[in-house]
Design a protein around this nucleic acid. Sequence first.
DNA 1: GTCAGTCGATACTCAACAGTATCCGATACG
DNA 2: CGTATCGGATACTGTTGAGTATCGACTGAC
Lengths: 225, 225
Amino acid sequence: MRAVSTSRPDQQRQQDQLQDRRRRPARDDVRRALLDAAARVFARQGIDGASLDDVAADAGFTKGAVYSNFGSKEGLVAALAEDRTSAYLDLGLEAVDDLDDTLAVRAQVLGDRLTAAGDEQRDWHLLFFELWQRAVRSDDPDGAFRDRRAALHAAVTAAMEEQSTKAGAALPMPASELATLLMALSNGLAMERMIAPEDVPDDLMGRVLALVVGHGPAAGPTDAQ
Amino acid sequence: MRAVSTSRPDQQRQQDQLQDRRRRPARDDVRRALLDAAARVFARQGIDGASLDDVAADAGFTKGAVYSNFGSKEGLVAALAEDRTSAYLDLGLEAVDDLDDTLAVRAQVLGDRLTAAGDEQRDWHLLFFELWQRAVRSDDPDGAFRDRRAALHAAVTAAMEEQSTKAGAALPMPASELATLLMALSNGLAMERMIAPEDVPDDLMGRVLALVVGHGPAAGPTDAQ
DNA sequence: GTCAGTCGATACTCAACAGTATCCGATACG
DNA sequence: CGTATCGGATACTGTTGAGTATCGACTGAC
């Protein structure tokens, strides 16, 4: 059962890992492994800076597997964007959900969670910025990335409205603008934190969000009128 | 896209433009032209995606000029970072300077200016993000980009403190954190605006800044209601 | 057990590009 | 003028990497 790897080629090592020895891995597993490897390698070296050989080798396969599964490098990138942007959306929503407190406290907690998530997923965040760049450069308005971002924005907006209603407190600006602000702040602070961690305290984002949200036109935290 | 030019090689066209025909352009002019072309081409195609031939051709020269002036592609990128990051710093400081009003109003104006600047300099902003990426990936703590960013942060912090003193109003958080916040917000909102302009109203940044700054612990101006 | 189809490995092609060596003409200086 | 130097053009090299053609082994169906 031990994965003896003395001098046998990569694809056999991979097969040992994924299933029993000499068994061909299921297609979905290969796909997954390649996508995960692509996320790692692209994040570290940049999409343009990484070759398909690099990606495939990291997954324990060869380029052939990539072409068989994704058709081209561009196809791999598109699949990756699809795959990982969904994960991002889920993470954001999860952070907003099932909180039960005043708006300001919720905002604080949300900020802390997003900051922590950004730290843990530094690599993925780098990849995210690169996908964003590609989407902006290719002014195709129907890219997967744009769609996903729009969905995230809509979901966050809805969550904001819901939270505001539940808390019975008005928001300081339209929910949709707050959603934009949240996303911008999350990305912007993550950037600053990556390049100069000492300038971005752990709780900064939470404090700012609490400040903004707690300053509603109809109901601040202390002056409920 | 050939202009009216018939068949004369590029370097002669360039010489015609910069000085009289057949006159060799001054070294500094060549350098400038190459840097400007690099900013344009890199912003549009990405640094990795653009070849030195592309850059040189855009400036009306050939690759030889690049190697003669910058030694390597990496050298060109470094010089570009040096050149353009200074410009960015100046723009930020200029936007903060010579304002004379309440803190909140100043914040509002500052936000508007930064937003407008981001719109006008979309290309440069894209390049900026790519330089940021490179700086983050190469964890060399002494890169020109990091240094420049640190200088900008320090300058903005100082400006914040000065403004706060002049206005006689306390800030809602340390000036240094406000500086971080300002930079993050500027970058983050610029990103959102590039990919989804309709989600980011012109005055959003100004309003948020005013909201934050107007909510000082010791002196909110009138407390918005 | 046999056979067809599939999937990934392997070995290529071909183009693009960073970098280099050399050349040539304009400028600067005697 | 004549000559040396300098800076950019031109032609070349080597390498890298995307994409392709083919091959062989595993799988699943009967």
